[in-house]
Amino acid sequence: MKQSLKLAGPSAAEKEFISRIEEAAETDIKLCYQCGKCTAGCPAAFAMDSPPRQIIRYLQLGLVEEVMGAESIWICATCETCSARCPRGVDIASLMDACRREALAAGKIRDKKVAVFNEAFLNGVKNFGRTYEAGLLLQHNLKTMQPFKDAELGLPMMKRGKVSILPDRIKGRDQVKKIFQRIETMGRE
């Protein structure tokens, strides 16, 4: 049910959120005049609950909750088509990225599958320095309760020598782990 919105102007926290993501994306959401070209060219818009233009509209009105709860920011593939074609030069793709990071940090994970994929990917990098594709798929399948997802591809991949059971460890993997740790201690960017 779409209730009517009571607009009272953004709160201080909401204003701060918006200026944070604007800084992270190096763009200005006030420029958007809601023409819809971003949604029109977005290859994933068909699967989004709120198309990109609407996300920007929510941000313009300071409706941060709506954005954090949207599936759209998780579906965005960061293909950059929107940013390339926006007549006002708004970097929508970077804004969607920034919103996704904020949502992740706030624990508001609307699309677990995508979040788990990213987490699994980065875990591999943290521990081994490089992507551990087999581990990534395994982790992703298990954590999203899809144990047999892509199972039909597993054996063919192995036959073609395209997947190694064991991870590829680099010598400097401790350095890479430290990179992750240093960033974690830095807290929010």
């Binding site: 992270a24 960061t78 990225d97 920034a98 996704r100 990071r101 992740l104 994929f117 990213n118 987490e119 990917f121 980065l122 591999g124 990098v125 320095g129 490089r130 992507t131 680099i170 010598k171 400097g172 993997r173 350095q175 890479v176 990179i179 992750f180 960033i183 830095m186 960017e189």
Partner: peptide, 25 residues
């Protein structure tokens, strides 16, 4: 020598600084 993963999409979806630090190495 001994290059590491660039972080691809997952890094910049998670933490911007990570997404820059991994390729920077």
């Amino acid at each position: 020598e001994d290059w590491n993963c660039c972080g691809a999409t997952s890094a910049h979806n998670t933490k911007q600084l990570l997404a820059l630090a991994l390729p920077a190495r």
